[in-house]
Amino acid sequence: MTSENLDQTAVETAGEAADEAKPVPGSSESAIPPEELDRLTDDIIAALKTVYDPEIPVDIYELGLVYRIDIDDDRGVAIDMTLTAPGCPVAGEMPGWVENAVGAVAGVGDIRVRMVFDPPWSQDMMSEEAQVALNMY
């Protein structure tokens, strides 16, 4: 199994460019050719950028809500994500939105979205692009 991770250290912090927040290759070899793995990763991130928090006019990826993306050898995708607040009114709907968006990516197998709240989300996790969009720069 290969792992493409967006762990806490890879999640963008203020001042880093959005394109630098790519998943970090895992330690194991992948049965998926590197070029395809790169394409899948890029396409999954692009799909995540189509999902918006309805209360904030910025996509969930740029907000720093996606903590981890794992792509296994069967092209199954596991995503750990959070919300800006545990009591977010769309908490029950957001995983479905993410699953639908990533499910539209060509070549993706099963999708599992897990909500996590550790570490808690903070504004420091937003990309520079998100900060500019929200006039927080």
Rank of each mutant, 00 (worst) to 15 (best):
M1F: 04
E4K: 12
L6Y: 03
L6R: 14
L6H: 03
D7Y: 14
Q8H: 10
Q8V: 15
Q8I: 15
Q8K: 08
A10Y: 14
E12W: 10
E12N: 14
T13K: 08
T13G: 11
G15V: 08
A17L: 15
A18T: 12
E20R: 14
E20I: 15
E20G: 12
E20T: 15
A21S: 09
A21D: 13
A21R: 08
V24A: 07
V24R: 10
P25I: 14
G26R: 12
S27M: 13
S28E: 11
S28M: 13
S30K: 13
I32M: 11
P33G: 08
P33I: 07
E36Q: 06
E36R: 11
D38N: 15
R39T: 05
T41M: 09
D42K: 11
D43V: 08
I45M: 06
A46Q: 14
A46M: 11
T50W: 10
Y52N: 10
P54L: 03
P54I: 04
P54W: 04
E55N: 12
V58W: 00
I60E: 03
I60P: 00
Y61M: 14
Y61G: 09
L63H: 02
G64E: 00
V66E: 06
V66W: 01
R68C: 08
I69T: 12
I69G: 02
I69V: 11
I69W: 08
D70K: 15
I71C: 04
D73G: 03
V77Q: 00
V77A: 10
M81Q: 04
T82Q: 04
G87D: 01
G87W: 01
C88G: 02
C88K: 02
C88W: 00
A91H: 05
E93W: 03
M94T: 04
P95E: 01
V98R: 10
N100I: 09
A101I: 09
G107D: 02
V108L: 02
V108D: 01
V108H: 04
D110I: 05
D110N: 07
I111Y: 00
R112T: 12
R112W: 08
R114Q: 10
R114V: 05
R114H: 11
M115H: 02
M115Q: 09
M115T: 07
V116E: 05
V116G: 12
V116N: 12
P119A: 05
P120T: 10
S122M: 08
D124V: 04
D124C: 05
M126T: 09
S127M: 04
E128Y: 01
E129F: 05
E129D: 07
A130V: 00
V132K: 09
V132Y: 10
A133F: 06
M136N: 13
